[in-house]
Design a binder for these strands. Sequence first.
RNA 1: GCGAAUGUAGCUCAGUUGGUUAGAGCGCUGGUUUGUGGUACCGGAGGUCGUGGGUUCAAGACCCAUCGUUCGCCCCA
Length: 469
Amino acid sequence: MIKRLRLQDRGNSAKIAISMASLSSESYKGARDWYPEDMRVRDYIFRVWRRVVKSYGYETYDAPLLEPLEVYAAKSGQELVNEQTYQFTDRGDRRVAIRPEMTPSVSRMIAARRQETPMPARWYNIAQFMRYERPQRGREREFWQLNVDIFGCSGASPEAEIISMGDRILKAFGAKDDMYVIRVNNRKVINFMMAHYLGLDAVQAQLMTKLFDRKNKIAPEAFRDQAVDIFGADQAKAGLQKIAQLLAAKSMGDLPESIRDSEAVREVQDLFTQLERAGVKNATFDITLMRGLDYYTGTVFEFFDTHPENNRALFGGGRYDGMVGLFGAEPLSAVGFAPGLTMTMLFLETHGLLPKFRSTTDVYMIVLGDTMRSALKVADELRQNGINVEVDLTERKIDKQLKTAVKKQISYLLFVGDDEIKSESYSLKNVATGADEKLSLERVISTVKDHRKNPVKDDDSAFDLSDLK
RNA sequence: GCGAAUGUAGCUCAGUUGGUUAGAGCGCUGGUUUGUGGUACCGGAGGUCGUGGGUUCAAGACCCAUCGUUCGCCCCA
């Protein structure tokens, strides 16, 4: 934040310099700084995401950071558009929003090339978004998420694929089945339940949907009282009984007969059969799962952290068949999901799944005596051979140079002094093991490259990012 | 947007009923040490006590406002 920048002093450089000194070093509210050690974590997560979705044949795309505001107005929900978008009017009087989500953009892109895109289209993207809302644990104003979507494929199989991918992603981070559950529901089941089974009108149905959404957050008595309010006095008793019956159902088989026989429930059953075949073990049907977005039309799901200290939704997704058609194209089946970076980091931290990271620099060169010119040549030769080398240019004492390298978490130290230059044999030290040996440059190169393929594990969990390239 | 807690060194925190020049541990940095991470000892830097007002002879402390952070509500892609 700028404190009292005195613009009237524009001609006086000394005063401006003084006012510049009072700039705050804090980042913008709800947006954090990413230091090198933070970027190691972020890069790791992005790489795991990419590796998994690419293994399912998904290709990456991107869309503009800005979209016309009305792109979000149609289907994203009023709250998101009116209160949570960063928006402005550009110089051509266009209403513009910084993207708060990716789904409308990717639907727009698909719609624009509806005819020529080979279907099913499997696309993914890792991008940055902004939403104007109150920051709290797990939620920031600026955030990153992976978006994965499959277009042009109806039925339960693309839904099973998407959910399996979510499952695989968590497993790729080292998660076990008991660390999370996958809650699954279907918008058509919800609609059928509200309209036919409970006999609610549109207004009542919307209120009841919100109430179901809150069910796990509020006391049972509060839930009952609010349900009575929605039903109205004369219908309350019968209505409560029906809801009790719904909530008692442990599986789809326990559901009241009129719901069980609906087309919507058969869709859900089909999905569960396929999930089982795909080896997804912890998916459960949850009739209280609603999800807020207006654009979902069928299956909805949510990955939920079971850890008591992080009991919250990790990410979710579902089927949104109406979106592509909004952009003037023939309607198209669409299923997607979007894990966020912040929630993933919290999940990994909570369950102790984050590896320790080393620098992307392979070698820190410690220069001794008056050998800088020769040392720089050696460093360059290593670089020509694909080794990432940082040279200590300070000519400080050896222990200072060494400490710097250790602090930067660089795997290898290479000592270059008079002896080494003369003998063309360099002292290479593995920081993790402490082992130190004199090697020719060729051996230095091969040793470092071998280490990349098989990182030494003896400092617990050193994790080499080149693993994931 | 609403409610609550909180803000003192890079980090974790202490600071008495308001009373001299605001402290500790860790970290950082220089040395003992002219080629290897440790330990020990000796030195050093670093704070307008989040910010702005107010009360007072006197404010890190009390009051008001404001900003940030955290937790909950709302909302949740």
